[in-house]
Design a protein around this nucleic acid. Sequence first.
DNA 1: ATTACTACTAAACGAGTAC
DNA 2: TGTACTCGTTTAGTAGTAA
Lengths: 228, 228
Amino acid sequence: MTDKHLWRHLNTLLALAEIGAHKRTAKISTEYLAEKLEISQQTASRYLIELERGGWIKRTITPEGSLIRISDKGTGELKKLYSNLRFLMETSYPPSVTLEGTVFTGLGEGAYYTSKEHYKKQFIEKLGFVPYPGTLNLKLATEYDLKTRAELDAYPTIEIEGFKNEDRTFGVVKCYPAIIGNKVKGALIFALRSHYDNSVLEIIAPICIRKHLNLKDGHKVKVEVTLP
Amino acid sequence: MTDKHLWRHLNTLLALAEIGAHKRTAKISTEYLAEKLEISQQTASRYLIELERGGWIKRTITPEGSLIRISDKGTGELKKLYSNLRFLMETSYPPSVTLEGTVFTGLGEGAYYTSKEHYKKQFIEKLGFVPYPGTLNLKLATEYDLKTRAELDAYPTIEIEGFKNEDRTFGVVKCYPAIIGNKVKGALIFALRSHYDNSVLEIIAPICIRKHLNLKDGHKVKVEVTLP
DNA sequence: ATTACTACTAAACGAGTAC
DNA sequence: TGTACTCGTTTAGTAGTAA
């Protein structure tokens, strides 16, 4: 439910909940409600009518006032707000961080790494998707983006274990789940000993992001890093 | 802080918190914020100006967008809302119940009871005030008030122990903290074996409610029973 | 006492546009 | 790109009052 007036109505629902209308039928006059909300009696009356029409409350009008009970729908809206807030207030990290960078063509290393079975298996297991063979490279430019990138180091990560084969050692890779260009679900990956510096993002996804978002070198792309 | 537009602003603060602006400086354009809130870019711009002027956010405008950090004041408002909601959602009883009754003159028993030292000591200890010697009696009339009175039986109470003296036995008294006439802090008291039926409320307070609220027999009084 | 309609006033909104 | 001003339009809010 996405109502234009939802917030105004939530305000009223909260006032009604404060007199217990979410648990039991409560009696309140429009005059008293108006006082509580610091609005006129007429407006309070209109609010109740709107809440009733919207199905957020059940109401019976008596000569002594309105008997009001917040409906399941109304309680649901309060609960939704509550859980939103709880998530925000009780998570020690910001729920998401947005970075913006410019597309550039890498050295083709991404394809090499993502094709390694040992990595690939872990990507599937820990990120939940089969990585498209290849990475999208973004160059960070602004001071804000570089600073924000640096903050990521303090974030909880998904760790992909390294391994050895006969030729060489493959190091640990840190992943941050992310949404690319407001659309594609993927992940930032940072090889601990990368050829790139901290101003570069490497991104994997289940599909070819370049094709999917129709990106060319020089295009700007927003990446929203979310908590794992 | 009681701002008229607080709720509209809380809506915006919540959207900003969703991009992490309560934990770190976040970058967002007025256009993007507008999209999130389903309002116009101009209105989003105005909202940010208002939030800034009100001290709820700190903002730095750059050519790429606004760098925004929710201030302590802003975070405080979100927290206040959160704890309000938590209290409402996680308390199994309604936070308060309001009853209305008509003043009548009792048999003077209240004064007798409240003067008993054994009761008085417990009133002071468990309710936090020295009871005025005498009770205010209210008669409940409407079906709603009688039904609501009955619900109180399921409520948690403050129990005042009974005692014996040489003459007779004094029973247990159940108390419900309450606010009388929107002003006076006191308590409903129910003697377990009372001379009155369930349509009568007996109220004690640190002062003489009748005098303080200038009440005469027949006047109507609202009593807000709160959780102990 | 109540609630809520009608008619009006005040406020918020957004299109156009400047910077 | 950005932000934010002016100003006409839309919407919300209230006073008066009926039921």
